[in-house]
Amino acid sequence: MTDVVLRTVNLIKRYGARLAVNDLNIEVCRGDVFGFLGPNGAGKSTVIRMILRLVFPTAGDVEIFGRSLRSAGQDVLDRIGAIVEKPAFYGHLSAYRNLEILGGLRRPVPRSRILEGLEQVGLANRADDRVKTFSHGMNQRLGLALALLSEPELVILDEPTTGLDPQGVKDVRDLIGQLARERGMTVFLSSHLLHEVEMTATRMAVIHEGILRAAGTVRDLLGNGDAVVAVRTDRPEAAVRFVEGHGGYPTAERRENGFALKLALARVPDLNRDLVQAGFQVYSLVPERSLETYFLNLVGD
């Protein structure tokens, strides 16, 4: 039986007349890198805030490690580390002092642990500098250090790579993978950088206008549905006219060496057969099946 570390149960949040989250049910299993996707205003941050008890659900519940947040209260958060939106610290205090205070609210954190955490995110040499002198990227890294300070079992990261340079983004991606693989942590990752989620997530859910649109493993979700098929033939113009005139195919998008058209994966062999039978030389026929395409298809309608 898969160990569910996080579960939302019919989770609803209403702000006045507006339904921000509508009857959300998702499960995060131990060891998952769970991608939580949605456009701006979809309700991702609201869900994360409800999980972390910053916001109270209108109805429904959150279960963390099998314990109900509604009945057990804030104690259940003891095994969670989290970054919610932009990490915020006490600017007049040093990085070290911030970790000491924010990390030590329940129990003291050893000095060595704090320094190790700073080392891990590349801020060891800025330990005594006041946080208000930090750049946005440094703040993000310090937030990561804080989230991981207590060696949590579940790490919730809301847009963890925002403001990071490409190297920083790669470092975070590598770190997320390491957390799951080597340290056995479960990662709940909310991001709108789809390719980053695609490269790190094992399971995902897509939320749009407060409603869950899809949930499952990345492989299963991307294995179904439409793809953008890139085609290269010997006579691209003629091939485009043939495809558009042939019943059942959508409008093609002309490209430099050929054309592309949105097509269900199951129909790709049909396209190949029709082109060959029409006398075209088909050099390549590649389905561009990506999370971005999947996502835009899901929420763009």
């Binding site: 804030q74 924010l102 609210l105």
Partner: peptide, 12 residues
């Protein structure tokens, strides 16, 4: 400052 986001999730 937004520091409640850390403070309240870690305080117990």
């Amino acid at each position: 400052a937004g520091t409640f986001r850390f403070l309240l999730t870690r305080a117990g």
